[in-house]
Design a protein around this nucleic acid. Sequence first.
DNA 1: CTGAAAGCGCTTACAG
DNA 2: CTGAAAGCGCTTACAG
Lengths: 336, 336
Amino acid sequence: MKDVARAAGVSPATVSRVLTNKANTTAEIKNKVLNAMEEMKYVPNINAQSLSSNRSRTICFTIARNPKEILGNSFFSDVLCGISDAAKLEDYNLQFALFHTIEEQVEKCVKLFKQKQVDGFILTSIRSSDKDLLLKSMQEKKVPFVMIGSSLTHRASSIHNDNVRDSYMATKYLIDKGYKQILLLTPPLKQDVVYDRIHGYQRAIEESGLKSTPEYILYCNDEEEDVIRALDQAKMDGISFDSVITMESIMSLSALKYCQSRGMKVPEDVGILCFNNAPYLDKVSPSISCVDLNPTLLGAEAFKLLLDLIDQPSKSLVNKSITLPSRIIERQSIVT
Amino acid sequence: MKDVARAAGVSPATVSRVLTNKANTTAEIKNKVLNAMEEMKYVPNINAQSLSSNRSRTICFTIARNPKEILGNSFFSDVLCGISDAAKLEDYNLQFALFHTIEEQVEKCVKLFKQKQVDGFILTSIRSSDKDLLLKSMQEKKVPFVMIGSSLTHRASSIHNDNVRDSYMATKYLIDKGYKQILLLTPPLKQDVVYDRIHGYQRAIEESGLKSTPEYILYCNDEEEDVIRALDQAKMDGISFDSVITMESIMSLSALKYCQSRGMKVPEDVGILCFNNAPYLDKVSPSISCVDLNPTLLGAEAFKLLLDLIDQPSKSLVNKSITLPSRIIERQSIVT
DNA sequence: CTGAAAGCGCTTACAG
DNA sequence: CTGAAAGCGCTTACAG
């Protein structure tokens, strides 16, 4: 920097000023400095900048619990792409952290912030049971963060889909197609998204004058054998169904496999619909319809919201919450 | 830090020494300092540390070109998990950058390093045509990096599978199962991995006394319609086949769909095998066999190698290259 | 083994 | 609008 200052015939302070683009500077001087920087291929030391300004221009995207599973889910990959592209536009760097326990996450996030290594966080895949601890800790320490997903019990800035509405819409869509006995297949996770979707599903069922029976909600893990077992069990319990909604896209493959192995035709005998788009859904036969949540946009909006929080901490009290639209992608697994 | 020093009754320098764990310190003093840090919940400012020590303890994982496609591939998700866990053990932070063009990547990587924001890079998904520019630029600027994948024409530290051997093994495996007309389905990418696998495939064919015809190597994109079209074209060209190896796991789904729609039974009429494991492969019917490349280990090893490079730059001339084992996961798409 | 001091490369009130 | 100076919070030769 000193060298640039000398080359441009000004003081280091002035170089800093054109760099930060803050105080007004004569166009002439500004150009001289800019040229000098160009010629010398000057690159400012970020650490020095961060130390002085107390800002790192780095945010961190975190995934909690079972990172491997979650990351393999293309939903999160897309979110990550959205964040990355949005961050690039603002010249922010993106850090990435996977956690295996909630305690680890709390500790590390607070530490990263105190260390001034990271200005804020985008939190995702938080279990309901973890939210309490995590959100409270972050808020106490005044760590800026945005959550992907929502919470009934906690006030926090968040970006999310309207899970109740989406699930209502999905269920309604099946009903409109003539399906009457709709199974809801869900992982046994205590997450708000699960509760919300169950709620939306029930609302649609009831509104349509169909009978809402809790037995039609099946809890099972997303491994194939779990899905098959759950469906077999339902059958044995005398539960007949003409369609299935799965909460994870990967579960829909197992549902399809089940139907095919049991001689049920998809979509005529059984319709299949899942949440979240994924690259394999249109490559199986029949291809599987889904509710697309627009994860890339979700990521981009999460970044923008976080930036607002970082820039204007006072506003963080407002806890802005943004709901994004989603849509149904129609494929062969539902009758037309 | 000053406060800690005061509380412990020592100088800041001493605090720094116990922090960096370098110079010898009396156990007694060390404990006093440690206790003081604990009590005050002292967290060192990373930026100051980095500024002084010229080390950021941050590495960056980069994905070049079509990040969305690539990231959705569970291979890279697994690599990322491997890197993340390995980095955590060494208390390193992980930064993440997606690039849309090679020029962008070169510029940004060099900049991040010069800014002292990042100590080194893990490079992946580099096209052969980009390698020249990228590797040369990084080496010229003395930016430490490790490449996932290998290169014939460039000397660089890398972690990779032996693609020739893996492909040879996969082809041999099919031949041993009795398949005689093996189609190789590959994306039209100018990447070493593609060349190597073609080579291994040809070697196995020739060695087994089967005739090696270039028409059995089909180039097509991984979209469903591309795969179907390629297979239809082959058929029209009078190429009959009893098995298919696909280079991308997602392509195997389309190959399966093709066979099923044309009344060919898998695995009896046509066997299917793909490279890279993926969560959906065991959930389709029949489930699809694959060559598992052990991506998590790949990521972990990449990190370790990079760390060596950063710690001992002199050794970077050695360009260590590590080859990891892979294995075939047997599923239903191949006869037993 | 430890302390005082200089230095890392920036930013930003404070004067002018 | 600009410069001189202090300061950000560490590390690390240099003495002792």
